[in-house]
């Protein structure tokens, strides 16, 4: 049993760590996408990862600020959270394990910006600790 049955969307999915097959930390499940199928029954179709989604859930001043900074950092493409189709979820236990490697997904805009402008410029940034 790789996905708990019954699956509790709030308990099993929301706010769990998302990792790739090698254990690389991709993000948290910041929201879950639900779509109504042909038979009228809603199904879980994707997980959303990103501060925009988290900010919208937290709400208030801090939530709006989180969502706004996440949107502003996107230089290319559209400022939306990373959307991972549920078919790519391989396992749900203490983490949500995906069946694809993180290189195949859009990396976080904040991570790229900090890597290119701050951390990547410091000598030794390429050496493993």
């Amino acid at each position: 049993m790789k996905i708990p049955d019954p699956l509790r969307v709030d308990f099993h999915l929301l706010d769990r760590q998302v990792v790739d097959p090698d254990g690389y930390l991709i993000g948290k499940v910041d929201d879950v996408e639900v779509s109504v199928g042909e038979d009228g029954v809603p199904v879980v179709t994707a997980i959303h990862i990103g501060q925009h989604a988290l900010g919208n859930r937290i709400g208030g001043v801090i939530g709006r600020w989180l969502a706004a900074t996440a949107r502003r950092l996107h230089e290319t493409g559209d400022p939306r959270p990373l959307r991972v189709p549920f078919e790519l979820v391989h396992k749900v236990d203490s983490a949500v394990v995906l069946s694809v490697r993180h290189e195949l997904m859009d990396p976080s805009a904040l991570e790229i910006w900090l890597r290119d402008n701050v951390i990547g410029r410091i000598p030794g940034a390429r050496d493993a600790g």
Binding site: Q17, V18, Y24, L25, I26, G27, K28, I49, Q51, L54, S108, E111, L114, R115, V118, I119, G120, I122, G124, A125, R126, D127, A128, G129
Partner: peptide, 15 residues
């Protein structure tokens, strides 16, 4: 936030 952290990876991979 679920970011990559720690000293096992290169610093530029946990910016």
């Amino acid at each position: 936030f679920g970011w990559q952290w720690g000293k096992l990876v290169r610093p530029r991979e946990a910016a």
